[in-house]
């Protein structure tokens, strides 16, 4: 399981970059159609949830909780 960023929702606040203890995210360089720089998932394998198999509960979730836009979702590998 690893995080992905929904570019329709992201407003580029970069709070996920700040709060992630494992430095999974990084500031983005591409402008979305709403005019924001969406953050990107750079090192998805560093995420604490990375090795959790299907149906498992995410461990850390701090990025999910902090993201004000609900733009971060967890996806199965």
């Amino acid at each position: 399981m690893y995080p992905i960023i929904n570019k329709d929702y992201c407003k580029g606040c970069n709070l996920c970059v700040e709060v992630c203890p494992k430095r999974v995210f990084e500031k983005g360089m591409e402008i979305t159609h709403r005019g924001y720089y969406a953050a990107v998932v750079k090192y998805k394998e560093q995420c604490t949830n990375f090795k959790i198999p299907n149906g498992g509960k995410p461990l850390c979730e701090i990025c999910w909780l902090t993201c004000p836009e609900h733009a971060i979702e967890f996806k199965e590998d």
Binding site: C13, C67, P68
Partner: peptide
């Protein structure tokens, strides 16, 4: 707004 704490 982007980065607003309300979303959290």
């Amino acid at each position: 707004c982007p980065g607003c704490g309300l979303g959290t």
